[in-house]
Each structure stands twice: as C-alpha cells, then as structure tokens.
Design a protein around this nucleic acid. Structure first.
Length: 883
DNA sequence: CGATCCCGCCACATT
DNA sequence: AATGTGGCGGGATCG
C-alpha cells in the first residue's frame, strides 16, 4: 500500500493526512516531511480527515488498481473510487509530483457519481436479468464491493432491496444468489395482493377524491379483500411478533420497507406515490403523531429504496403538484397487470420458489391458506429450477424462521395503520362474511391441505375466494366484444355485489359451486363443448356434450418443464384439493365455474371416464373471447387449426389497428369462434387415479388428433392419471399450435400419448399437451423470436406464451393468446376506469395455482423465456398506448 | 432552502 | 471476540 501511495497518492497524501501520513511518509520519504507541515499550515484543513479516511483512501486507491489489473479495466475510471478530494491543497504541492492528479481531482466524484442508483445500475449490469435456470450466480459481497469500489455497506443497501423483490437471495454469509427477474412478476403479484389487504384502503384514503370511493370498491372487489380481511384481521390483531420470536429489529429493515413501498405502488390506482404519503403509511406506530425525525429518517430510507427500484426500471421519479406545491413522488413504471393475466399463470408455478420467501417476508398476514404444506413439499422440489438451490436449502431453512419473525413484525407495522384499516376492516368483514358463506366450502377444501404455510396462504385464499364469487355464467356466452366487457364488469360486480349475494352474483359470469369438484376450463378455443358439462356453462358452450370430444390432447399440453396447469391434486392425492387441480391456463380464464356436487353428476354423465370419480372437480376456464359463435360447432372447430392460425397470422400484421381494443378482439374472435374450453375433472381424493380433461372442443385439435393419430382418442375426453397430474402441471392450450411450431400433429399425438403414459408413474416433469403439436425444444426459440415482435405475439404466440410462461415462472400455461389479449385490452383499455378486472383475473389465476399444486414449474428447462409477463407487457403496451 | 442521499458510526446478529 | 448486517441520522450536495 505504501508503495502504492507513493506512486500515486504520495503527493496528495501528505497534504491530507497529517498524522498518519506523516508517520508513513517519514518512513518512506523524508522529503515530504517538510511539505506536510507546510500544507497543514496553509490549510487549516477544511478536511476532516480521520484515520479512517486515510484507510479509506488507501483502500479505495488500491481497489481501483486491483480492478484494472485483475478484472477488466472496464469498470470505471479510477476516479470514482478515489476520494481524494485533495484537490486544491494537493494541487499546490502535488503539482510537482503528478500532474495527473489534477485530473483526478477534477473528476472528483460528484455526488451523483456515487449515488446509490448509479451503483445499483453497475451492480445490475453485472448480472443477467434472466439468467438461465441452470446457472446459479453467486454474489460475493466483498467482491462486488471491491469491484464497484464502494463500501460493503452500500452493497447491503442494494442487495436488501433486491432481495425484497426476490431478485437475489441471501445464501450465506457474504454470499447472495442471483435469481434475476424471472420471478419478479410473481413477486409483484404477491406484493400486490398483500398490499391490497394492507394498504388498499389506506391508499384510498390518502388518495382522496371521489376516486377513493371507487378505489375502495375496486379493491374490495378484488379477491384479496375478502381473503385478506380475514387474514388481515386475524393477523393484525396478533402481536405475534413479540411472542413469535424476539422479533429482531431487523425485521423491519429495508427489505420490508421496500416491499411495502412497492405494495403501495401496486395498490395505488395512479401508480404514483408521493414520498410523504409513503413515509406516513410506512411509519409504524401511530400515524397520528408522526415524529418529525422519524419521518425524516423514513424518507431517507425511501430514497435509498427508490434509487434501487429506479435502477431496476420499476419506478421513476416524478413530481406531483398539489395545492401546496409540488411534492416529490415516484411513479410505477413496471409491470402492473400480473394480477390478472400474467401473474395468474405464473402464480402457480412461480409460487414455488419465490413465493415462499416472499410471502414469508412480506406477507406475514397471509397464513390462512391450507395449501401451504403441500407446497412446501413441492417447494423443495421446485427449487430445482432455481439457480441456487444448494444454497437455497439454507435459505429455505434458515430464512424461514427469521422471516417468519419478520412477518410478525410486519403485522405489527400494519397495526399502526390499524385505525384506518379498522374502518376498512369493518367493511371488509362484512364482505368477507358474505364471501365466507359462499366460500366456506372452498375454503374448507383448501383447508384440507394439511400443512399450510403461512407463506403460501396468500395465494390460496384469493383463489378460493374467487370461485365463490363468480357465479354467473351468462356472460360467458357473450359475444365477443361483450364478453370481454362483461367479464370485467362481472368481476368487479361481485365485489360490489357484496351486498348480498356472495355466492352467486347476478352479474358475474360464473357460477360458483362451493364444493364442486369440477372445474371448467375454457380455452381460448372457440368451441368448447364444455358448456354442456355445465348447465350454466352451457352458454359457453356450445354445443352439446358431445362436442367436448376434442380431448385435451389438443387442448392441453403438458410440458415437463412447463408449468402448466396444475392439476392439482397433489401428487399424493391425499388431499385432492379440488382446486388445485385447476388448470390454469394462463390465459385468462374469464369465468370459472365450479360446479360442485351437482356438477358432478352432470359431468359424470357427460364424461365417460367420470365414473372414476364420484366427486370430480371441474374447472372451467373461460376465455373471454367472445367468440362469435358459440354455436360454432365442433366441426367448426374441426377446421384445421392451421387454417385458423394462418388467418390469424395475417391479421396479426395489423395488430395496431386492433390493438385499440375490443375491435381487435372481435377480429380474433372472428378468427376464433370460441375460446376453447376444457373441462378438467379431478377425481376426488383417491377416487380415481385418473383425471379427465375434456376439451370443449377444439375442432382443430380434435380433428388433428383423431385424424392424424389418435383415432382411438376420438373420445372427447382425455384421461390422465391423477397421480400424473399431480406431478405435472397441465396446460391446456386451446389454441392451436402456431404455424410456427414445426411439430406436426403427429408429434402432438405423440405428446398426448406420452402424457398418458407418463401419468401413470409420477414423473415430476409436467407434460404439456397441446392441441397442436408442442415442441418443447422448439418452443424456446420460438418464444424468443416472437417476443421481440409484440404484435404478432398475441396470436400465434399461444404456444410461445405457454412455453414462455412455463419457462418463466408461471406455472400456468397460457393457452390462448387471444384471450389474453382480449382480457388485457379491456384491462388496459382506458375504457373501464377501474382496474377491477385485473383483480378478478388474478384471483382466477391464483386459485388454480394456489390450489393447484404449486408446481414448481418455474424451473423448467434451463432456458427460460422471458415470461409471459414480458409478452403481456408488450401487449399491454400495444393496447394501452395504441401507437 | 428544500430535496436528496452519501457516509459511516455503531448496535445487533452470527459465527 | 471477530465479523457480518444493517438501522440510523448527521450533514454534505444538488437543484
């Protein structure tokens, strides 16, 4: 070091460092002695040099060199690192020694250059946003700190925020594991849900205006509310923190603050949060008396967090001018839709890894769900996907406990808002009660799951709720444009409807059968024969029961890596949570029908295989598509997918026009008469080992299948061993394989066959069954290519999406691109002011996911695609900002 | 002068 | 006790 100093610093050093340097200097060079004194004399020293400072200088000076040598010189200019502010002083003396010094001086690190935001960018630049699942990237704090030329403390600031979003995880001492943004949307979704529970009302209050009212309603609408309420209510009261463990003060840490901060954005209607409001909300304890100092401190922290979030591209700084003047604020510019769409799918699979942590940390409140344990188990398995598994273990084990504590803490913090919340709570309770009546059964189901982790709870609850909420089917049948609207409207309605009809809302498109084991899934495909299955659904449907023929094969694809839907039943079957099975389609299943017992009968009748299960769960997902013709008979569907797709493609070209909204949809509809629907019948516990999937019909699929290869399968139903399902997530993509997919139908058939065979044994890998041939390998490439082009995406992309989705995190598969689009549009569309539907969607998705096994899809193949989320984003963008 | 937020002390946690 | 973490707030810098 000394040497080093001499070469470079020598001149400067003397000036600055009085005592220390002197000693050193003396040792080193007598010459300087004289100098030093002079300097001192000259300058009374503005510099507060401290021994530490010297050390720092040395270190900093050294570090840069190190970097250059060792690493690439790339990084930054040494300048940054150096703190020598010696400038003036040094100049005088130093001039002699080094002219170069001056330069450094000039460049002195302006504050900005050292900002946390910039530092964070550098940090992020070192790691891929979407690392391959296979590669686990470990981050060494010391290493990074030295490379970036900052103190480790700063790295903590960054890492803590990143950890709150699950971009990294704390593996071990000084070691963090980089996950990238694969799970980001999932995390955000979770946070949003949590946020709604905790802050929805508060935010509404803060954001006064008439909006508030709406806001509240909207929130209530969302599934979260009811659920949350229960939880929240429960949780809040609990002072658990204390008891649970000595809550370490750390619990409140930056991490939690960060999550809460993000929640505020996600809950905020405007997506803009002012610092003061955030600080007020986040300050624990009495909101009444806001200790000024505390407030100030909080704001400081928020700046720290905001800097990191800004670097992540999730928020941006803005100013809001209010009566009083302009206030600093931040606007959320990250993804927003997860709830409904993107997230849904993800929810399932992604939940596995990310959620656990997330939930534990952030969402202490949600514990209710039953699903928990199962997930846990799976959870472990899930880990596979993630990069740092080995580490994970630790994490999972270790962190959990601590995190739990944290949760407790969180709860407490929430309490501070209790007053405000209480008001809301009252309302919620009412609502919740209503819901409960309806949901009770469902809940019970969830409850069945023996082990429930608090972590998972969040998801499950909402899910459970959803089913309940949606009652009406009518909307389902809706024609195109209408359908989309209805869906949305319907969704919101429920919440509002709280008035009284919990179980079935008139408006709602879906019927809820509390205990029903059946779920209907509606694929984007036009014809789903499913409706037959459900009386109510019938509307959806379409043609008769027979229609359903198109079996899953076409519709559903399983992908080993993909997460598709999950079927749920936990592999074990022990607890066949009815819901779990839900498939998800990521698509946006508009409606969900859960006919319970009653439904069973119908289904059973309808289904040949039904016999297996006395209690079958039927899940129906509905794509919003308003397909023009519900009528579209099977036969229509029978049209070769290709043809349809082809048509679509061309159209895709014009996406822009469509984009605006419904119109777009209508077109699609035209193309696709119906969203395909699938019925998934789960065997009740133990009953059958087989699961049946019925495709509403996708003609194409059916056709292809039968024609090409699965003559035997002519039957509309696909039977999948429950066990298999459990282990695999099913994805049903009503949509046809995009033309892109090279795989011929034959492949498809093969796939199907495989699925069956697979089912028997418990294979961990999910099978993807698609009407069209699905090619796993291909998928990835396709996805990539497609992604870039957003417009096209929506159409063909189905597969891609599904794939992508799968790859990513989302457990759910998106089967129907179209549907998604539609949904999004509406949501994105300015038309409906309220974003209600999103919530609904989310709930939707969640349900399956949460219920369903938490398949650990996410891992999937190594190659992960940016997810559906990205796609969605694009979509949204396109739709939202129509050019 | 208010908005930002760097810096690093020091308490607490972990090893 | 050493070391890792990270809460916290003084006070510098920015605009």
């Amino acid at each position: 070091e000394n040497i080093f100093d001499r070469s470079r610093m020598a001149p400067k050093t003397p000036i600055k460092n009085e005592p220390v340097d002197l000693s050193k200097q003396k040792g080193c060079t007598p010459e300087r002695n004289p100098i030093t004194p002079v300097k001192l004399v000259d300058r009374p020293q503005p510099d507060p040099w401290t021994p530490t400072a010297n050390l720092k200088m040395l270190v900093s000076a050294a570090s840069p060199d190190m970097r250059d040598r060792e690493k690439k010189k790339e990084l930054f200019r040494p300048i940054e690192n150096r703190e020598q502010s010696n400038t003036s002083d040094s100049l005088q003396y130093n001039m002699v020694d080094d002219s170069t010094v001056d330069e450094f001086e000039k460049q002195r690190p302006s504050r900005k250059q050292k900002s946390l935001g910039l530092l964070c960018q550098k940090f992020l630049a070192r790691y891929p946003s979407y690392p391959l699942s296979t590669e686990k990237t470990t981050i060494s704090l010391d290493e990074v700190a030295s490379i970036l030329g900052v103190e480790r403390r700063r790295i903590y600031d960054i890492v803590n925020v990143l950890e709150s979003l699950h971009l990294v995880s704390h593996v071990a001492k000084n070691q963090y594991c980089w996950h990238g943004r694969h799970n980001l949307s999932q995390t955000l979704k979770t946070l949003q849900e949590a946020g709604e529970l905790q802050y929805g009302e508060l935010m509404a209050l803060f954001q006064h205006k008439e909006q508030d009212l709406e806001y509240k309603f909207g929130e209530r609408k969302r599934e979260a509310i009811p659920e949350c309420q229960d939880r929240s209510l429960l949780d809040f009261p609990e002072p658990d923190c204390t008891s649970a463990s000595a809550s370490s003060r750390k619990d409140k840490s930056l991490r939690i603050m960060s999550q809460k901060f993000v929640m505020l954005f996600l809950v905020s209607k405007t997506k803009i949060v002012t610092l003061d409001i955030a600080a007020k909300i986040l300050i624990e304890e009495t909101q009444d008396t806001v200790d000024p100092s505390k407030f100030k401190t909080k704001v400081r922290r928020l700046y720290d967090i905001a800097n990191v979030l800004t670097s992540l591209g999730l928020i941006k700084k803005v100013h809001v001018t209010e009566e009083r003047g302009r206030k600093p604020a931040f606007k959320w510019i990250g993804p927003v839709e997860f709830p409904g769409k993107t997230d849904e799918p993800r929810g399932h699979s992604p939940t596995s890894d990310p959620l656990p942590t997330m939930q534990s940390e952030a969402c202490a409140p949600y514990q209710i769900h039953a699903t928990g344990k199962q997930r846990f188990t799976r959870h472990a398995s899930f880990n596979v996907g993630q990069p740092c598994e080995g580490t994970r273990r630790k994490v999972s084990s270790e962190p959990n406990s601590p995190r739990q504590k944290r949760q407790a803490c969180i709860v407490n913090s929430d309490e501070y808002c209790s007053k405000m919340i209480n008001l809301a709570a009252v309302c919620r309770q009412k609502i919740a009660e209503d819901n409960r009546t309806c949901a009770t059964e469902t809940t019970l189901k969830s409850g069945r799951n023996p082990g429930i982790d608090s972590d998972f709870c969040v998801n499950t609850l909402p899910q459970t709720v959803f089913p309940v909420v949606r009652a009406d089917v009518p909307s389902l049948s809706l024609p195109n444009g209408v359908s989309s609207q209805t869906l949305h409207s319907s969704i919101p309605a429920p919440s509002k409807t709280e008035n009284g009809k919990p179980p079935v809302l008139p408006n709602q498109p879906f019927l809820c059968f509390p205990s029903s084991s059946l779920f209907m899934l509606c694929g984007g495909l036009r014809e789903n024969n499913l409706r037959e299955t459900l009386p109510t659904t019938g509307d959806v449907g379409n043609r008769g029961a027979e229609a359903p023929a198109a079996v899953l094969p076409g519709a559903c694809q399983k992908h080993s890596s993909h997460k598709c839907t999950s079927p749920s039943a936990p592999a074990n079957d022990e607890e066949p949570a009815a819901k779990k099975q839900s498939l998800e389609r990521n698509d946006v299943p508009l409606s969900l029908v859960v006919p319970k017992k009653s439904s069973e009968s119908p289904k059973a009748s309808s289904n040949p295989g039904s016999g297996c299960t006395s209690a079958v769960h039927l899940e129906a997902f509905h794509l919003d598509l308003a397909s023009p013709a519900p009528e579209a008979t099977n036969k229509d569907s029978t049209k070769p997918l290709d043809s349809q797709e082809q048509e679509k493609w061309p159209r895709n070209k014009d996406p822009y026009e469509r984009a605006p909204g419904k119109e777009h949809i209508s077109k699609e509809n035209a193309n696709q008469p119906f969203p395909p629907q699938y019925l998934y019948v789960q065997p009740t516990a133990g009953l059958s080992s087989c699961n049946f999937l019925f495709s509403a019909n996708q003609a194409p699929a059916a056709v292809s299948l039968t024609a090409s290869q699965l003559p035997s399968l002519s039957v509309p139903c696909v039977v999948v061993p429950s066990a298999a399902l459990a282990s695999f997530p099913l994805v049903c993509s009503p949509t046809i394989a995009s033309p892109v997919s090279p795989v011929p139908d034959g492949s498809f058939s093969a796939a199907t066959s495989m699925s069956f065979s697979m089912s028997g044994p418990a294979s961990t890998t999910p099978v993807f069954v698609g009407p069209t041939a699905v090619v796993t390998p291909k998928i990835s490439p396709l996805v990539d290519s497609q992604q870039p082009t957003h417009p096209t995406l929506h159409l063909s992309p189905v597969l891609a999406r599904s794939c992508s989705a799968v790859k990513l995190d989302s457990p759910v598969c998106m089967g129907h691109p179209v549907t998604l689009l539609k949904l999004q549009q509406p949501s994105s569309t300015p038309l409906t002011p309220k974003s209600i539907r999103p919530a609904c969607h989310e709930a939707f998705f969640k349900t399956p996911g949460s219920l369903g096994d938490p398949v650990a899809w996410k891992k999937n193949e190594g190659t992960q695609i940016r997810n559906a989320s990205s796609v969605q984003r694009r979509l949204e963008i396109s739709s939202t900002s129509p050019d």
